[in-house]
Design a protein around this nucleic acid. Sequence first.
DNA 1: TACTCTGTTGAATA
DNA 2: TTATTCAACAGAGT
Length: 292
Amino acid sequence: MPTGQTKLDAASPPSYSSTVPELAEVEFYRKQWNPGLGGKIRAVALHSGKRIFRGSDTSTLEKFLPGATLQKSEAHGKQMLFRFSKQLWLGVHLGMTGTLRVAPSGFQPGKHDHLVLHQRGRALVFNDPRQFGRLRFHQGLDVPGWWAKLPPALTSDSFTAAVMGKFLQRHRQLPLKAALLHQAGFPGIGNWMADEILWRGRLHPRTRAGEISEKKSRELWRVVRFVCREACKIIGRDFSDPPRGWFIHERWTAKGRCPRHRELLPRATIGGRTTAWCPKCQPEPVSRLRRS
DNA sequence: TACTCTGTTGAATA
DNA sequence: TTATTCAACAGAGT
């Protein structure tokens, strides 16, 4: 191995600090099972009774999935849906610590490998130590109801500035940071993406969602689109680092500095999550200052 | 050893 | 109806 290289295989965690799956990371993990597309499931191994399967009957999964063929997969925000023959579906949410990977045949599941789909020549593995994720089994001609009801994907044509504006108005009292984390309006946005978006939009994370001007709202919409598209291109492809100059690189430690002018970034819990911002680019909203 | 921190979702509470 | 808080969980760090 060349000097200075970390020991990483193809499906290993990212080199930057976020291991938590958001929009782009989910897309990356979805593709990890691609080698199994078109392949028949020969056997299933799972940890029944684990929280990860909440709401699903694992015995029917064990009964019906063997013999079925993996046909297709899709990602939508933080959700994934795997379609099998025989009208079988597997919904996957990675939570905070979930991953998908391919292992060699004969794979022996470890403590946190809660689901293993054995195919000829390989095993499709779902691993999640903390089990904040979820596996949902569904039988039926149509996609599961929860999948059909997902809000417009942020990179799709149906996520318009008007749709976003309406959502912000409905939750006008929420700090923008909390609104961006709301999966019903911004499916796929997580903590680092929310901070990245607010920094680029030059909006303080505590700004109330209903408080921003039409113009600012439109800018925010453009930034949401940009960050989602770029992240999918960069991270979603092969888990590469976003380029220098992205806020993501600075927001992890107390020593982070604004990429624009090296201002030290304060950190606080906003919307229940650790949040970093630049006081120079993202001034505190006026209405808040008056109130306090 | 014991304690804190991590960040997602959904249930409970206000 | 919407906003806020907290439990679920496991491991790394102090």
